[in-house]
């Protein structure tokens, strides 16, 4: 196991390096931040000095070398706009996004697996069909529109939930979280639901498909032939088998929920990383964009590793292969 983790970490470094190259070149191609950051009325000399201060007078490869030297030491550059370390800006916003993403995933898992199981067990019943119809809606309605509708209904018409922002936070182990206060919950529930909708639909479909497939397997019939109760056959024999693909998808989707909470964060003015990214792109704040993408890549790698490790817990066949490898 430790060998496996070390090998995976080395691979992760290679991926991060390749990613940094791509992102750096890509962001360079997007536009020149000088046009936005420096007052157009500024004296040419002042302009020169500002450009030099940002390090933008050097050729791309030299800029990249400087960045890389810093990155190895854990410094991903300073924001042009906020004149603060880019990494620090991102980490400040990260708890808000993580909280939103976790709440969304929790909703998706807590509802998606039972609903999917139900629909898989009774594919022809009215309830089963209704669940599937609902999941199609969850798939096809655009997130921003659902977000606006939620605001419209619950904030404007009913006036029961706040339309934007994050509630008061409480520090837990130095991390500010809002889900421990009632007001925090009231702020969290709508954006989390909005973000969860797509993943919920996905999990319902995945669970349903897995259930239907598993029910046809001989081991299910054999389990019934042993005289086990229906509840045990489904909750132990079926669920343990379909959990393997579900965990993979949950892991990967968690990464994408974090990375692409941007739309929901924008609609609900949630002070997370996604909002920071949008603002940074608008201002061509290169260091923040690069740092954000690298952080997301690192997150994805970490989540994938966790999924792989979980896999070996869930599926005994994987464990054996690992021991050989």
């Amino acid at each position: 196991m430790p060998v496996y983790v070390i090998r995976r970490s080395l691979q992760a470094l290679v991926v991060l390096f390749a990613m940094s190259l791509l992102v750096f070149a890509g962001v360079y191609a997007v536009g020149n931040p000088v046009d936005i950051l420096i007052n157009p009325q500024a004296e040419p000399l002042e302009r020169e000095r500002a450009i030099a201060a940002l390090g933008l007078d050097k050729p791309l490869w030299e800029q990249y070398a400087t960045f890389l030297r810093g990155a190895v030491a854990g410094d991903l550059g300073r924001s042009f706009v906020h004149s603060a370390p880019a990494l620090q800006l991102i980490l400040e916003r990260m708890p808000a996004t993580l909280e939103l993403a976790s709440a969304a995933m929790l909703i998706a898992v807590a509802l998606g697996i039972p609903l999917g199981l139900w629909a898989g067990l009774r594919p022809d019943s009215v309830s089963g069909r209704a669940i599937m119809a609902g999941s199609i809606l969850g798939f096809s309605l655009p997130t921003f529109w659902v977000g606006l509708m939620l605001i419209m209904v619950f904030s404007v018409m009913l006036g029961v939930l706040p339309s934007n922002g994050r509630g008061p936070t409480v520090e837990v182990l130095g991390v500010p979280v809002s889900f421990l206060t009632v007001e925090g919950w009231r702020h969290l529930v709508m954006p989390a639901t909005n973000l969860a909708l797509f993943k919920l639909a996905l999990l319902i479909r995945l669970t349903r498909a897995g259930t239907r497939e598993a029910l046809l397997q001989d081991y299910v019939k054999f389990a019934r032939a042993k005289g086990l109760s229906n509840a045990r056959v489904i909750l132990v024999h079926v669920l343990r088998n379909i959990l393997i693909p579900i965990v993979t998808v949950i892991g990967l989707e968690f990464g994408s929920v974090i990375a692409f909470a941007i739309v929901t964060e924008s609609v609900f003015a949630w002070p997370g990383m996604g909002k920071l990214l949008i603002d940074s792109i608008n201002l061509l704040d290169r260091p923040v964009i690069v740092a954000y993408l690298l952080v997301i890549v690192a997150l994805f790698i970490a989540i994938n590793l966790v999924v792989d490790l979980l896999y070996s817990v869930l599926d005994p066949r994987v464990r054996l292969q690992e021991a050989r490898g």
């Binding site: 001989d218 132990v236 024999h237 088998n241």
Partner: peptide
């Protein structure tokens, strides 16, 4: 196929 692959 008759034994559940993920249970001891």
């Amino acid at each position: 196929m008759t034994l559940n692959p993920v249970m001891r």
